[in-house]
């Protein structure tokens, strides 16, 4: 991406006005790391939104509200009771990238290997988008297709509301990589709600080994109403093949990807169940 001009708007409405005026020639810049790798060399104007007060983490009742320009390192370092977002952020890229790369940058244009969409789908998060007024979009709707299309008209992601996990809720995420800082071979996230020993509700999502992050409905259906036990988790994980087109790459066959996903689903479910039963903070 070639930047030909750099704009630093003073407010959110001004930023939106800039983007609407620029149309296809405008490009939101937060951390900006992705811009360096875009192969399109059409000159664009960068609209820097990093100084608009969109970097924050607030506990607001039933949600943690995370600003769109919050660096991943801040999410990784944040601590609160039953906070779960730090684990996946620690696994994303390197320390230097996490200091710059933002939550919004990871989910406004979703790459197949992105980890945060997987986690936000499992967590049933809500994306807040400014279009003159703020509107919330549930993760299922937001990640149904490439979110970048939503922002072509100048709208701006301002924050993400992640539900605060209750005492009987648990969350687990697994990212399988070849080396510490490489992109994921598979990413799995699972959120369980327990009712005693049984699973009351489940959200399981996957990414990286499939074309686009998505939930795994057959896996979820095989969990609800049943005991939160390893045998049940194994059986549910075995349904993953029916839920997504697992694909091979980097020497992995599609079958290997699916198998890796099944093993990772089992691990994520075990972690979520342990969390729900009372994770050591």
């Amino acid at each position: 991406m070639k930047l030909c001009e750099f704009i630093r708007p003073a407010s959110l409405p001004a930023a939106r006005d800039n983007l609407r005026e620029l149309g296809a020639k405008g490009m939101i810049l937060a951390g900006g790391t992705a811009l360096h790798f875009m192969q399109d060399h059409t000159p664009v104007t960068a609209v820097d939104i990093t100084r608009l007060g969109l970097s924050f983490i607030k506990h607001e009742g039933a949600f943690y509200n995370i600003g769109a320009t919050t660096p991943l390192a801040d999410i990784q370092r944040y601590r609160a009771p039953r906070w779960a977002m730090h684990e996946i952020c620690r696994r994303i890229s390197t320390h230097q990238i996490r200091n710059i790369s933002t939550l919004g940058g990871n989910i406004c244009r979703v790459f197949p290997w992105a980890d945060l969409p997987v986690v936000l789908l499992a967590m049933d998060a809500r994306m807040v988008i400014y279009s003159g007024k703020e509107t919330e979009f549930p993760a299922d709707e937001y990640f149904k297709t490439q979110p970048a299309k939503r922002f072509l008209g100048g709208d701006i992601l301002t924050s993400v509301k992640v539900p605060a996990l209750q005492a009987h809720h648990g969350f687990g995420s697994i990212k399988v990589v070849r080396t510490e800082a490489s992109f994921a071979m598979v990413t799995i996230a699972a959120r369980l709600e327990l009712d005693g020993a049984n699973i009351k509700s489940a959200r399981v999502a996957a990414g990286s080994a499939i074309p686009f992050p998505r939930r795994l409905p057959s896996v979820e259906a095989a969990l609800v109403g049943r005991e939160a036990a390893t045998a049940v988790f194994q059986e549910a994980a075995g349904k993953a093949g029916a839920d997504a087109p697992w694909r091979g790459r980097e020497g992995m066959s599609p079958d290997y990807s699916r198998h890796l996903a099944e093993v990772s689903i089992l691990d994520a479910l075990e972690r979520a169940a342990t969390f729900a039963r009372g994770r050591a903070e």
Binding site: G32, D48, H95, I97, N99
Partner: peptide, 13 residues
Amino acid sequence: DRAVYACLLYAMQ
């Protein structure tokens, strides 16, 4: 005070 890659930052940032 935070470590960053200077190759992935535009000078304007």
